[in-house]
Design a protein around this nucleic acid. Structure first.
Lengths: 231, 231
DNA sequence: GCGATGTTTCGATTAGCATCGAACTATGAA
DNA sequence: TTCATAGTTCGATGCTAATCGAAACATCGC
């Protein structure tokens, strides 16, 4: 028995895989709902609720109730610093969770992240949209669809008015840990992926997060999302 | 399932109370043996061995074998930074392990830390020895008993030659978390406490770490350890 | 060589906690 | 109102990991 700050309690809160996944997801800086965090962690809503209660009790996260949602964010800057230090140590000591199996290359290339496109192609898409100024970063970290961007996605076949009516944010940044870059989430990210599936460019593999592009679809994808700002 | 550094594994290593106690003890910066760490953590040597193997495997601590001892230190500066951040958060969120009972004031005042005196009186003793230059800090963090110090403790009734023969370091610094200052451990720290008990200045309370000073003993203590360098 | 001390391995036990199904509450939509 | 979705609570289950006793192993002092 020793006196002093009880670091074990705090560390144990982060030490559970499900909770660590939630916190990693929150590192992107955006508030996420309990259900979204449950998906990120790969657990049911009940389990997530229990975890979030503990994290909140421990001051690791803060929760705001808005309507029937509860949005969670990281507690404060100390927590962010702690998680970043933790990530650095985990990486340096070779503790990463990257899967090394046959599915891995496919997963790195294109996969579902919740309901939008992640992996190399997801990152390529998002960065192309930025380069062409179809989306823009706002002060505060928000992402906005520009007027040119609105025209672009409408031409691509998305119902922008419908998407704007959803309570969900239109554009959201999502950290892609396999790439160390961001990709596009939010209603627009989901809409773009859905449209590609509808167009037959790709299909989801059963019981997997892999998004399998057809050769034709992949060509069409890079035709559309490799063009330069001026071309 | 997410990719990225596996922060859960590292955090879980720190999240066990026994391991957290060991790491807290190592924060003082000195290498400690497996047995000492077992005492700090309040577990048996077998359990400590298992914990230390895990901490070493995870890169949190490093172990050097010297003779039949194994000395452990914290892995590197990142780990220290991590633990410090952790302590700050734990303290700010009110997660400290300080007992709040009737015994608490007594514990803060004077208690046993392994086998030497801790708490307010332990810190006062150590700081007085420093002020009077009876002990001195060496480069590298070691603490040395000066010639004047050797005369002082001999006059107090300690068998210095005998203590020097022990394989245990004579002077060792020990972080006192209730005071946030150091007190004196090592063979000398243990010897000084034992001498006070022998002199009848104080006695140990049963089933407690409290050291109970008699009024006479407390007066004698402060007579001896409040004097200034020049007086 | 011998005994003593420090450390590790093995095996068995136990306790804590993550997990989920089912039922319940709360908010918003129609 | 009724239905749907988001979130929580409760209870039961199962797995993981901490713990310790006993014994083996290692090293020192003799």
């Amino acid at each position: 028995m020793k006196e002093g700050p009880d670091i074990a309690r705090v560390a144990a809160l982060i030490g559970d895989p499900a909770r660590a996944n939630m916190l990693t997801a929150l590192m992107a800086g955006r508030a996420l709902t309990a259900t979204e965090l449950a998906q990120e962690a790969g657990v049911t809503a009940q389990t997530a609720s229990s975890h979030l209660a503990k994290l909140q009790e421990g001051g690791i996260v803060e929760g705001r109730k808005q309507g029937r949602h509860r949005y969670f964010t990281l507690g404060n800057a100390d927590i962010v610093e702690l998680l970043e230090t933790l990530m650095g140590i985990a990486q340096r000591t070779g503790h990463n969770r990257v899967r090394t199996g046959p599915k891995d290359p496919a997963l790195r290339k294109a996969r579902i992240c919740y309901d939008h496109l992640a992996g190399e192609m997801g990152v390529a898409l998002f960065e192309n949209l930025q380069q062409r100024q179809l989306v823009s970063f706002e002060p505060g970290g928000d992402i906005k669809l520009t007027d040119a961007g609105a025209g672009f996605v409408t031409a691509f076949g998305l119902d922008l008015d419908h998407m704007r009516q959803l309570r969900r944010p239109l554009c959201r940044e999502c950290l892609d840990w396999s790439m160390r870059r961001s990709h596009l989430a939010g209603a627009l990210g989901a809409g773009l992926l859905q449209r590609m599936l509808d167009l037959g460019w790709a299909r989801r593999l059963r019981d997997s997060r892999v998004v399998d592009f057809t050769p034709t679809g992949e060509r069409a994808f890079y035709d559309l999302f490799s063009s330069l700002p001026n071309s």
